[in-house]
């Protein structure tokens, strides 16, 4: 399964409580759509670090990196390229 797929499954299961893939648009803002709140983002970072073995530094914890499926995927790619 791709990172994108794993991430989507995680968000659908834990924050949208559904298996309906159409419920999550990869560009949708987690914050604006009320999908994940400010405490929930900590759980997402835990998931990324645990599942994909990345380290998210404090200064990287910004909506530009984390606020949608597409943003997280691009962030993960940049992290991998830099590694």
């Amino acid at each position: 399964m791709t990172h994108r797929q794993q991430l989507r499954d995680y968000i659908l299961e834990n924050y949208l409580f559904t298996s309906d893939a159409s419920a999550l648009d990869d560009d949708a803002s987690f914050l604006e759509r009320g999908i994940i709140d400010s405490t929930g983002i900590m759980e997402v970072i835990d998931f990324l670090e645990e599942r994909f073995g990345v380290q998210v530094r404090d200064e990287e914890m910004i909506p530009e990196n984390l606020d949608s499926v597409n943003r997280i995927c691009r962030f993960l790619e940049r992290k991998r390229a830099a590694a």
Binding site: L31, M42, D58, E59
Partner: peptide, 16 residues
């Protein structure tokens, strides 16, 4: 308690 030990949580507070 929302002043997260992990730095930039502020941005999320602002959005909310």
């Amino acid at each position: 308690y929302l002043d997260m030990t992990r730095g930039q949580g502020q941005v999320y507070l602002e959005r909310f």
